[in-house]
């Protein structure tokens, strides 16, 4: 072996004109790296792909959850004070309150004082609800039943924001409330669902006292696994009688720089 037999063994990432390496780097991430350009704009393929993803995101926001799905999942349908999709985006405050007739319906059709009140809501992605909730919800219900936790009557809220669970939980005097809600879609996935939960729900309760499991979708936390994890987390919330930052009291050792 001669001393220069290593001449061609340099690190290929040093060579910035190496198209092959650039391709590999770009392939490692779903972000739009190295799409190229045609004059001042992206090439047609990349532009179409971008518009398709953007269309999927818009659809997730503006479409409605299919009524038959709500029926199949045996959910009681409620509405917030929001009138339509445009108002939903413009007035987050209305998405946190239930319409008058829905409050009546809540008391008529749902059992009071459940251990865990389950709420499903479209939020900003109906697509997320349609793809993930049918897998997640049965796991969650079976798991909680297994632990003798009463889940009452699960409901579906159209045009809901996270804090609508405070209203529903307070009205029904639930020990704990969990909301499965579609997240603001990105250009990577429009199917991301989150589960927020709170112990002792009441109107105006602080966000800091809510816990969350996020990124629930097929290429994130799989919905079935999220369901099983929520069972453990909710059982812990009921046992500790706390949620959110109150659960992490022992972890809160802030250090100040002297």
């Amino acid at each position: 072996m001669t001393p220069d037999s290593n001449a061609n063994a340099t690190d290929p990432t040093d060579d910035r004109t190496d198209a092959e390496t650039l391709r590999r780097v770009a392939d490692r991430t779903p972000t739009r790296l190295d799409v190229g350009r045609a004059g001042p704009r992206p090439p047609t393929d990349a532009l179409l792909e971008f518009r398709e993803d953007h269309g999927l995101a818009r659809d997730a926001v503006f479409s409605r959850v299919d009524d038959s799905l709500v029926d199949d999942l045996d959910l009681v349908t409620l509405r917030t004070r929001v009138a339509d999709a445009d108002q939903y985006l413009a007035r987050p405050d209305l998405g946190r309150e239930l319409a008058e007739e829905s409050i009546t319906r809540l008391h008529e059709e749902c059992s009071e004082t459940p251990g865990v009140q389950i709420v499903v809501s479209d939020g900003l992605s109906s697509t997320a609800v349609e793809t993930s909730v049918p897998e997640l919800l049965p796991v969650l219900k079976d798991g909680l039943a297994e632990r003798d936790i009463d889940v009452g009557t699960p409901v579906f809220v159209e045009f809901g924001r996270v804090d609508v669970m405070d209203v529903i939980g307070e009205e029904l005097a639930a020990d704990c409330c969990v909301i499965l809600i579609g997240e603001r879609p990105g250009l990577r996935t429009a199917e991301s669902l989150s589960a927020y939960f709170v112990y002792g729900p009441e109107r105006g309760g602080p966000t800091a006292e809510k816990s969350v499991v996020s990124n629930i979708h097929d290429s994130g936390l799989p919905p079935v696994e999220a369901g099983a994890e929520l069972v453990d987390l909710l059982a812990n919330v009921l046992e500790q009688e706390a949620s959110g930052i109150d659960l992490r009291e022992d972890d809160r050792e802030f250090e100040t720089e002297s």
């Binding site: 796991v139 079976d142 297994e146 799989p222 069972v231």
Partner: peptide, 14 residues
Amino acid sequence: RQNCAKVLGQTLRR
């Protein structure tokens, strides 16, 4: 290999 231990464990436990 897939992320499903908790749901499989919970289902088996029954």
